[in-house]
Amino acid sequence: MSKNVLLTGGTGFIGKYLTDLLIANGFSVSVLSRSERKNTPEITYYKWDLDRNFIEEEAILKADYIVHLAGEGIVEKRWTAKRKKELLESRVKPIDLIGSVLKKNNKILDAFVSASAVGIYGAKTSEEIRTEESDPANDFLGSTCQTWEEAVDQIGALNIRTVKIRTGIVLGKNEGFLKKMAPSFKFGFGAILGTGKQYVPWIHIQDLCQIYLKAIVDPAMHHSYNAAITDNTTNAILSKTLANVYGYTLWLPRVPEFLLKIALGEMSDAVLKGERVSFEKLQKAGFQFQYTNLEAALSLCVH
Rank of each mutant, 00 (worst) to 15 (best):
E132T: 12
C209S: 13
F140Q: 08
Q206R: 15
K93I: 11
T131N: 07
V101P: 01
I155L: 07
L208D: 10
S126F: 04
A157C: 13
I95E: 02
S134E: 12
V92A: 00
K186L: 02
V170L: 03
T144L: 06
K173V: 03
S126Q: 07
W202Q: 02
G122S: 11
E86R: 07
Q206H: 13
I192W: 09
L213V: 13
N138R: 13
R161G: 01
K164D: 03
G188H: 13
F177I: 04
A151I: 05
F112P: 03
I120F: 10
K104T: 15
Y199P: 09
H223K: 14
D96N: 09
H222N: 14
D207Q: 12
Q206Y: 14
T195E: 12
I169Y: 06
A191E: 14
V118Y: 00
D207G: 08
F177M: 06
K84T: 12
A117W: 06
G122V: 10
M221G: 01
G172E: 08
D207C: 07
N174G: 00
L208F: 13
K164Q: 10
H222F: 15
S100Q: 12
F185M: 08
I155R: 07
F187V: 15
K179V: 00
S90D: 09
S90V: 01
I205V: 15
M181N: 03
K93P: 00
